[in-house]
Design a protein around this nucleic acid. Structure first.
Length: 255
DNA sequence: ATGCCGTCCGAAGGACGA
């Protein structure tokens, strides 16, 4: 079972890219982030053979899933704050597996309510995942975590020192998720391997110079970690015409 | 030290991203 996560930076702008990836990627499930629009063309994707679900809002955020098998939606929002209307969370089951698609808040600039929102969102996520662990529900969570876990996940740690993605608080909150007994798929299979990124800024020639950061991740509960076959970053879509600034990360799970 | 680029909304340029 192949599951991919990809921040597409506008579904409207990346529609052809997504359709190409669904056609050629050999995926069972694709989870995407940053739809950046209210409308989601369920009918058009159904015609292409995909079950879909989406949580959207106007202009910002938004997450969606594509699956070859029917989708049972579990939650369309992260519990813990009824006033939070940002479309960043989708928990579902498909093909007998619990999956979670997230677009974790960016949090910049540090020292503002945006950063405290990021940290509070991560604490709410911790509580939700803790519940799933306590209830012994196997799951995989993937998405744009907007966290650079370690120095080796960043081409130039100094350049990111003041960024919300690299703050000690952000990284500690990420580790706290791992301390629930979760496996970070890419790093578990590729330890001590710097230079592997999932995001490259559009500016300053970041892509050709491989000045990237690794911020898109999959975390697996123990049962699914046991079944993890591979975790790869597919750099190809970042080289396409008018690309997203992120590229897909893919896990393969033994069925 | 800062902007670089891209997208949205909407019809100019600010908000946001990371």
């Amino acid at each position: 079972m192949k599951i991919a996560s990809w921040n597409v930076n506008s579904l409207k702008a990346r529609r052809a890219h997504v359709e190409k990836y669904l056609a050629d990627g050999g995926l069972d499930v694709l989870m995407v982030q940053e739809l950046k629009g209210l409308d989601f063309p369920h009918g058009e994707f159904k015609a292409l053979g995909w079950h879909t679900a989406a949580v959207t809002q106007k202009t910002y955020n938004g997450v969606a899933i594509f699956s070859k098998t029917p989708i049972k939606i579990i939650k369309e929002a992260l519990p813990g704050d009824k006033d939070d209307e940002q479309a960043r969370y989708l928990e579902f089951e498909t093909n007998g597996v619990r999956l979670i698609d997230i677009y974790l808040p960016n949090g910049n600039p540090v020292g503002t309510e945006k950063f405290t929102y990021k940290l509070s969102w991560m604490e709410r996520l911790y509580k939700r995942l803790k519940t799933l662990r306590k209830d012994n529900i196997p799951f995989a969570i993937g998405g744009d975590f907007n966290v650079i876990p370690e120095d080796q996940d960043c081409y130039d740690p100094k350049a990111w020192q003041t960024d919300a993605l690299f703050q000690p608080e952000s990284r500690a909150a990420f580790r706290k998720l791992l301390h629930l007994g979760l496996t970070e798929a890419f790093r578990a299979l590729h330890p001590n391997a710097p230079g592997h990124y999932t995001f490259w800024d559009y500016q300053a020639g970041a892509w050709p110079k491989n000045h990237g950061i690794r911020i898109d991740h999959f975390l697996l509960s123990p049962e699914l970690a046991d079944r993890l076959i591979s975790c790869t970053i597919d750099k190809a879509p970042r080289s396409w015409d008018k690309p997203s600034d992120h590229t897909p990360i893919i896990i393969e799970i033994d069925p």
